[in-house]
């Protein structure tokens, strides 16, 4: 039988709500202001209707940035999730090497975004960087400042290097929580390695894997610092992702109206995807009986 939901406890979160109001709600309201209004300065605003939205929806520039963004997120998810799970499956389960691997895996996660960008920017340089110099020496034409493919590969490999650990650690935590009895039962049934993964490990780590996908999707969809430091969005516009384009528009050109309309659409897409993921995750939990 379903219990009645009592919503009175929401009053207890009122202090947090106030805090969030100042850190998120009021800034968001300001963005809405800019998206629907225009100003000639002096803090006097007038109604601009849907002009900025119309302009953005017809803007080739926004659609191509969105296309690049979706491609980027899809590629890094397609690499990081299977790779992370593969690493987690092969990490030692206990003893010295387990701790050693855990520390090693967390190292990239501890490095600030702009430092990651700087590391790869120097690493890939043909004149002083180890990677760029080596590739050049063996005859590979690699220059991420001029070549489209080199720039994309650099940005993707950098993200994989930076964030696969997160997926691996989450998947590892999920794997560690599977009781031994499951493996013993599989052994009695003479299940092979693939069957153990497919019918025991994968279903059991599905919950954490969904969290990993959600985190990686959100983070990659909002990526700014690393590609900005490495390629600056270039060559041309080839690695100009949504947030880089947005910052160029808002702070570079000071086109606050179109940039605000752009932000709101960007926000709506993230909200939609996060909500879908959240719903799927809670439904998975319920199905598992947690």
């Amino acid at each position: 039988m379903n219990k009645t939901v009592n919503q009175k406890a929401w009053f207890l979160v009122l202090p947090v709500l106030l805090l969030v109001a100042f850190s998120a709600v009021i800034p968001l309201m300001t963005v809405v202001n800019y998206a629907f209004q225009d100003t000639f300065g002096n803090n006097k605003f007038f109604w601009a209707g849907l002009d900025w939205f119309q302009e953005m929806l017809e803007s080739e520039r926004m659609w191509s940035a969105l296309g690049r963004q979706i491609a980027f997120s899809a590629i890094i998810l397609a690499i990081e999730i299977p790779l992370g799970v593969f690493i987690a499956l092969n990490m030692p389960k206990k003893g010295f090497w387990a701790s050693f691997c855990l520390v090693l895996m967390s190292l990239p996660l501890l490095i600030p975004w702009n430092v990651v960008g700087t590391i790869w920017q120097i690493f890939g340089r043909v004149d002083i960087g180890l990677l760029g110099y080596t590739l050049d020496a063996i005859g590979v034409d690699y220059n991420y400042t001029q070549d489209f493919y080199a720039a994309w590969i650099t940005v993707i490999v950098m993200d994989v290097w930076h964030w696969t650990s997160l997926v691996a650690l989450l998947a590892y935590a999920g794997l560690q929580s599977i009781p031994d009895a499951y493996y013993q039962a599989a052994k009695i049934d003479q299940a092979g390695r693939w069957k153990v993964f497919r019918f025991i490990e994968l279903p059991k780590i599905m919950g954490v894997l969904m969290i990993a996908i959600l985190l990686r999707f959100m983070d990659s969809f909002m990526i700014y610092t690393e590609p900005f430091v490495v390629t600056g969005g270039g060559p041309g516009n080839s690695t100009t992702f949504l947030s880089i384009d947005l910052v160029k528009m808002a702070l570079g050109q000071f086109d606050l109206g179109p940039a605000a309309a752009f932000s709101i659409m960007y926000y709506l897409v993230i909200l939609l995807v996060s909500y879908v993921f959240y719903t799927v995750m809670t439904n998975l939990d319920k199905r598992d009986g947690h």
Partner: peptide
């Protein structure tokens, strides 16, 4: 809040 009547109505 730098509102016009339209944005004020929306909020």
């Amino acid at each position: 809040m730098a509102w016009t009547w339209q944005t004020a109505t929306f909020f």
